[in-house]
Nucleic acid binder design. Structure first.
Length: 423
RNA sequence: GUGGACGUAGCUCAGCUGGUAGAGCCCCGGAUUGUGAUUCCGGCCGUCGUGGGUUCGAGCCCCAUCGUCCACCCCA
């Protein structure tokens, strides 16, 4: 045997036993999107590196040290998408979707970031992503948040908390940034190394520091919330009122700052205490300036991304259910003649009762062995076919979860099975 | 990228101060021969993550490397 090829760090296989969680989450997401009129868009995983540099920000951690980027054969720099928003905005511009139009979109797929893996954080990770273009008012902000709240409810997820904040317009934020930088400079001696570094790039992130030694300094810092432009302030107030009217509890976290440069006004984050340090399960915000920044017509926009691995971890942690995918009917067949006839019969049943999940035992062996597999498969009922049955044109039908074994003609089998499975 | 813990059969793990590997589960077969729990009996399964080194001898010691996990950083 030759050497194993090892999987790449942070890249996971989703095995069949695990797949039901993914299917459940995705089914709920698609259902809710459909409830709200969001339509699916699928975009490439690979884009020009420039797209992400321009959209996310050249000096963000994502672009600076986490992006999988490389040169193709022609020497052009490409990158695996670290998030979906930039690609969707690019697609919307490329296809003229934003000309006098509004769009509510979603996409589901893998993203890539070269970080050190941890529980709930992988190098290839999946996001459910929603974006709305052309809606400038706070109503769509509320709608996007309400959609996520509905998803939690349908999934049975409870230990999540909503935090919201407003970053104001780009101009207001720039002014505040200067103010904050001034304040922090005045107290530079009290800053830790990380914060000194952030002071240059993104001073707002200093407010997010977990270092308890800086808590006092941070508490005394000027608040972004106190320096919002009037329009943003009104927008934020209206959003809060809409959330209250909808009965979605939230807390305003004035220190909530997103790591991506493109956000403006509303930002929000669903956090949990059930996942260790990876506490953000879903987050998003408004990015009214991004479309023009990427060369499109000025279009208000907002979106969020939900981490699928984290959400699934949460579902498992909280004991939510995801249906086990087992067959309804399991065919047990002994002997070459019965096997051949059985496969034919199984085909007939599938044709007559297309909704039945019918699995045949192709593993051979004794009835005993086949019954063990039938039991393990989780099927509700076994259909038994031996030489006797083939000769008589009848199958033995044995309910595996209680009930009497009966005999039924081949002709009546499909209808009989449907009745048993339904009952 | 930084710091720490870990890496033994498909899975969960044991392996005393170094003497050339074990249990349970799973899987397969059987308990009077066409029927799934349980029980009983039998069987299969390992280059002890990988590569070096120390040693008469290493799963146990040392180094490197890969991977996992935790924290930091960052983020979904």
């Amino acid at each position: 045997m030759s050497e194993h090829i090892e999987p790449l760090r942070g890249m996971n296989d989703v095995l069949p036993d695990e797949a039901r969680w993914w299917n459940r989450l995705e089914a709920v997401a698609r259902e809710v999107f459909s409830n709200y009129g969001y339509r699916e868009i699928r975009v490439p995983l690979l884009e020009r590196t420039q797209l992400f540099k321009r959209a996310i920000g050249e000096y963000t951690d994502i672009v600076e040290k986490e992006m999988f980027s490389f040169e193709d054969r022609d020497g052009q720099s490409l990158a695996l998408r670290p998030e979906a928003t930039a690609s969707i905005v690019r697609a919307a511009i490329s296809n003229g979707l934003l000309h006098n139009q509004k769009h509510r979109l979603f996409t589901i797929g893998p993203m890539f970031r070269g970080e050190r893996p941890q529980k709930g954080r992988y190098r290839q990770f999946y996001q459910i992503d929603a974006e709305a273009f052309g809606y400038g008012g706070p109503e769509v902000d509320a709608e996007l948040i309400l959609m996520t709240a509905r998803m939690w409810r349908q999934l049975g997820i409870s230990r999540v908390r909503l935090e919201i904040n407003s970053l104001g317009t780009a101009e207001a934020r720039a002014q505040y940034r200067d103010l904050l930088r001034e304040y922090l400079r005045a107290h530079e001696a009290q800053l830790d190394a990380d914060s000194v570094r952030r002071l240059q790039g993104n001073p707002l992130r200093v407010l997010d520091s977990k270092n308890p030694d800086m808590a006092e300094l941070i508490a005394a810092a000027p608040l972004l919330t106190d320096h919002l432009d009037e329009e943003s302030r009104v927008h934020f107030e209206r959003l809060k009122a809409l959330l209250e009217a909808a009965g979605v509890p939230y807390t305003v976290n004035p220190r909530l700052v997103r790591g991506l440069d493109y956000y403006s006004r509303t930002v929000f984050e669903w956090v949990t205490d059930a996942l260790g340090s990876q506490n953000a399960v879903c987050s998003g915000g408004r990015y009214d300036g991004l479309v023009t920044q990427l060369g499109g017509e000025s279009t208000p926009a907002i979106g969020w991304a939900m981490g699928m691995e984290r959400t699934i971890l949460l579902m498992q942690e909280l004991g939510c259910d995801a249906p086990v995918e087992s067959p309804d009917v399991y065919f047990v067949m002994a002997g070459a003649t019965a096997l051949a006839r059985g496969l034919q019969l199984a085909e007939d049943v599938r044709t007559a009762a297309p909704r039945l999940k019918l699995e045949t035992d192709l593993g051979g062996g004794s009835f005993k062995a086949q019954f063990k597999r039938a039991d393990k498969s989780g099927a509700k009922v076994a259909v038994v076919l031996g030489d006797d049955e083939v000769v008589r044109g009848e199958a033995s039908v044995k309910p595996l979860r209680g009930g009497e074994q009966t005999t039924i003609s081949f002709d009546a089998l499909a209808a009989h099975l449907e009745a048993i499975v339904a009952g």
